[in-house]
Amino acid sequence: MEPARGSVKNRIRQLRFEHGEMTQQALAERIGVSRQTVNAIEGGKYAPSLEVAFRIALVFAVPIEAVFQFDPDAK
């Protein structure tokens, strides 16, 4: 079996910018995680749970696919 490929990309940095330069801390407080977790999600070092992903989308008032995209070709 071939190893699974692909990774989850996100537009959180851009969405924060579009929402009045919302800080990572402000976003973290609204979704109930630490600032470091937001930083890890934004930097692609941590794929969030579905619940956290939905919370993020809810904060920016966009569909979840506008925040997260799956890139099947990424290693």
């Binding site: 109930g32 630490s34 619940e51």
Partner: peptide, 10 residues
């Protein structure tokens, strides 16, 4: 100090 979040537990 902050409580552990979902990432910490995972």
């Amino acid at each position: 100090p902050e409580p552990a979040d979902v990432r910490d537990r995972e």
